[in-house]
Design a protein around this nucleic acid. Sequence first.
DNA 1: GTGTAGACTTTAGTCGACT
DNA 2: AAGTCGACTAAAGTCTACA
Lengths: 79, 79
Amino acid sequence: MGNQKSAAVGLQRTVAENLKERRLRLGLSQEEFAEVCGYHRTYIGSIERAERNITLSTLDALARALNVPPNELLRENNG
Amino acid sequence: MGNQKSAAVGLQRTVAENLKERRLRLGLSQEEFAEVCGYHRTYIGSIERAERNITLSTLDALARALNVPPNELLRENNG
DNA sequence: GTGTAGACTTTAGTCGACT
DNA sequence: AAGTCGACTAAAGTCTACA
């Protein structure tokens, strides 16, 4: 077997879906949510479009703002 | 409340502990494991020392090499 | 209220050499 | 077999302006 490096687009999509769903559940716009977690509006948008390969610290900040454990954002909701 | 940005050292430690434990369980050295997942030996070492704020793609690569779901590496093992 | 594009700054990730 | 120190390249993250 070769190495295991990948683009991890799947994980990006999972985070994107979970983020959007939970943000809307809180009744927040991207703009409002961005302010809560301290990121720029356009950056939050690009994460929700699964364009971003975010770091642990960003994942943590999103999770805190959503009031969920970080690993929750990586959970696939097939149901 | 202000924004939610953080250094996420807690998450880094969680990943570090899970990675080391599972790598050892597979009977692999850092060097051997590094080759499996396609990263440099010194980089894997620094992740295990919780010095690194890794991205989703790296988390994914580590998880694949360990044959566990990515969110497993973010799970705190207090028990 | 969101998407896109671009220029910019910071940091993740690479690697060799020595301990 | 693992840690540390750099120097380097690639990409994360910031922000403004316009659609």
